[in-house]
Design a protein around this nucleic acid. Structure first.
Lengths: 217, 217
DNA sequence: TAGATTGTTAATCGATTAACAATC
DNA sequence: TAGATTGTTAATCGATTAACAATC
């Protein structure tokens, strides 16, 4: 599966959920592509990686395509997520509507600040029983990983703490990390790290703004 | 300038800031590449787009390379940033350490929730005078854009509000948008949108975890 | 049968890598 | 001069696009 395709599958999945919501049962590649913000050719190429799921002359069945992509992305099981860093960012992630519905459960949140330890992080839930999480102390990271066996850890700490937290997560057995701290994390080859960096995004926008200004001048 | 290069320049810039902090004055492409998490060849190719700035047999001067990249990224001037949506996410952005130091100033924050309007958003500042921001009402978006002339707008609203907010921003003259809502925004061709989507990132990690599991079995 | 749309092929494009001549 | 490292070239690789035969 080409990496570029993998990065787009979640977008198709989201678009399909929206279409199902609107009651759409069948959709052409061009229409789905528009909803997902890509070209029709690219969408068809991507979907062909999953096998033949459309009907020529008709399009794709929204329901079966949704479950096919969901299966490829591993959304058929629940994923346990551990959040390290319970500041605004960590809380924003937990509150993020829709994650629970897609099988992501926040099983624990940790912080080093005594003012935050013991507070509750509201997890958005959709028809689920209570699943709010009480913030634990960073010192108990290893114990918490052993207890809740997270599949994925989110690092939402300041940059200075990120590598240390990451090392401890990896030593405790975590192999998938979503990193919000502006650092290049060093990890073993079998560990997957995805980085989200606000500064990088703003820099890229600034680059284009600057271009626009100098073009206009 | 190739798009792939532009997305990596902020990483080099950040690595250089870190090196300068440690007192490093000169660095080879291989060492800088390691700090930024790329290969030496890629780094040299990228930097060659900015012109010849290294010295053969020696390496790059940290200070001059930093200012060269900063100039290309437009970090020589201050950028006014407007945040729409003052929930946890919007607040997390404002608090993000280091942004102020790189010339990004949050000039306004807006929300539709009366409980949030009038509250203060703490902006991280480094040796700057007071620059906290009072949350305004979403209804005043047009007035606020006219007043503060933001170069960049950040959409940190729920998905349902995002397109409407975006339309109003564009109509008011904003041309650079950082979107955290899980929606494909429709914008005119001259507008640049960067999307950050947590669900997409988690889906990609889930994909790799699933692969790992099936490989192991 | 006629119209629509997929799945696939071949062509193009851009990004990455490896290697090394240029040069400090 | 000898060792180190850049900047650039050429080769490789992967991703995108266009086009259309297959087929509903």
């Amino acid at each position: 599966m080409p990496p570029a395709t993998v990065t787009r599958l979640p977008g198709y999945y989201r678009a399909l959920l929206g279409l199902a919501d609107e009651g759409v049962e069948t959709i052409s590649s061009e229409d789905l592509a528009r909803a997902a913000g890509v070209t029709g050719a690219k969408l068809r190429k991507d979907l062909s990686q999953l096998g033949s799921f459309g009907t020529r002359g008709v399009g794709y069945d929204v329901e079966s395509l949704t479950s096919r992509i969901g299966a490829v992305l591993g959304l058929t099981k629940d994923w346990a997520v551990l959040i390290v860093g319970a500041g605004n960012l960590g809380r924003a992630l937990a509150t993020y509507a829709g994650l629970g519905a897609q099988g992501f459960r926040i099983v624990a949140a940790l912080d080093i600040d005594p003012a935050r330890v013991g507070t509750t992080v509201r997890q958005s839930r959709l028809g689920e029983d209570d699943c709010d999480v009480v913030v634990g102390h960073l010192d108990d990271l290893e114990a918490e990983v052993a207890r809740s066996s997270p599949d994925i850890a989110v690092i939402a700490t300041p940059a200075t703490a990120a590598q240390d937290v990451c090392d401890r997560l990896v030593a405790a057995g975590v192999r998938s990390v979503l990193n919000f701290a502006p650092v290049v994390l060093e990890v073993p080859a079998d560990t997957v790290v995805r980085n989200v960096d606000l500064a990088t995004e703003l820099h890229i926008l600034a680059f284009h703004e600057r271009r626009r200004e100098s073009r206009g001048a």
